[in-house]
Simulated scan of single mutants.
Amino acid sequence: MSTPVVARFGSGGAEPWADALRGAAVSLELVPTASAQRGERLDVQRWTTGADATDRAVLHGLASPLLDIGSGPGRMIRAAIAAGLDAYGVDADAAAVRAARAAGLPVLDADVFDALPLTGEWSSLLLLDGNIGIGGDVPALLARCAELLRDGGALVVETDPDPARDEVAEYRVRASHGGESDPFPWSRVGRRALLRAAREFVVERVWETEGRSFVRLRITRSGGAAAR
């Protein structure tokens, strides 16, 4: 399957996401391009430091090999390896890949829709930190995850804390110094929208903790009713 994403999160323009990954002292916002709506702060500090207890709890019950989609600088890869999992990341952002590899973490420099190793054989996938929004097409991204997973494999998705949220729009990443990325398509979905789109999966668990919301899905090609 090859459905390349033309514009990526935070890339182009002033490259604010790359600046943050290089350690620049900036705060970032996700800003809609076609609206006067205020931007939403991005939790760069959490993404660029070690995994916290909530992150580590996400890994409970997952099996190897594990792929973190949109892995950024690699905190979840490091946490998964520390938990005894055979874990990798994939990210299309060159700055993120450089940061992760500089830390000795195994990250594929690719878009999730590119040809990837172990397609159909991954036991676990992660879509955290809003990465369910990649490409602005949740059904396409979920279908790609179903392709990547082995039968019985698990996908953990972090959803928007608002369970009713269901938005697709064009956004920019804006830094506190005013620099902006190029526009890119992105989805913002809460639990309800995700469950509507996840028809190929069985819903295994739904939970909230520390202001964050998660859903664990499992692919069962042999069939089975989803608990919704």
Rank of each mutant, 00 (worst) to 15 (best):
R78F: 01
A94R: 15
S124M: 08
A193T: 03
L116D: 02
L149S: 12
T49V: 07
D160T: 05
H177R: 09
G50H: 08
I77C: 06
D91R: 11
S222E: 14
A227R: 12
M1W: 00
P183M: 08
E208V: 11
L62G: 12
R22Y: 01
P106A: 10
P139F: 00
R144N: 06
L108I: 15
P32N: 11
G190E: 03
L128P: 08
D93M: 14
I132H: 03
A83N: 07
G23R: 00
L66W: 09
L195C: 12
V112C: 12
D162F: 01
S176D: 03
A169F: 03
R196T: 13
T220P: 05
D68E: 05
D182R: 10
A169L: 10
L127G: 11
A20Q: 00
V107K: 14
R199F: 03
P106F: 02
V97Q: 08
T159Q: 10
A226K: 13
R216V: 04
L142Y: 04
G136K: 05
T159M: 09
R205S: 13
I132A: 13
A140E: 11
R174D: 06
T49D: 11
A79W: 04
P73T: 01
A82L: 10
A20M: 01
S222D: 14
A82N: 02
L105C: 06
Q45T: 06
R188W: 09
V58F: 03
G10E: 02
E167Y: 08
A82I: 00
W47T: 00
F9E: 03
G104S: 02
D182W: 02
A103S: 12
P65K: 05
L66K: 07
A103G: 04
V97H: 13
V156N: 09
A63R: 15
Q45V: 07
T3F: 04
L85H: 11
L21W: 07
S181I: 07
N131C: 10
L85W: 07
W207Q: 11
D162K: 00
G61A: 08
V31Q: 15
Y171K: 12
V58N: 07
G12Y: 01
S124Q: 10
A51K: 09
L21H: 04
D166P: 05
G211I: 00
G135P: 13
S213P: 08
E158D: 00
E15P: 08
A226D: 15
A115M: 03
V112G: 14
T49K: 00
G50L: 04
T3K: 07
D68I: 02
V58M: 03
G223A: 10
E121Q: 15
A83I: 02
A175R: 13
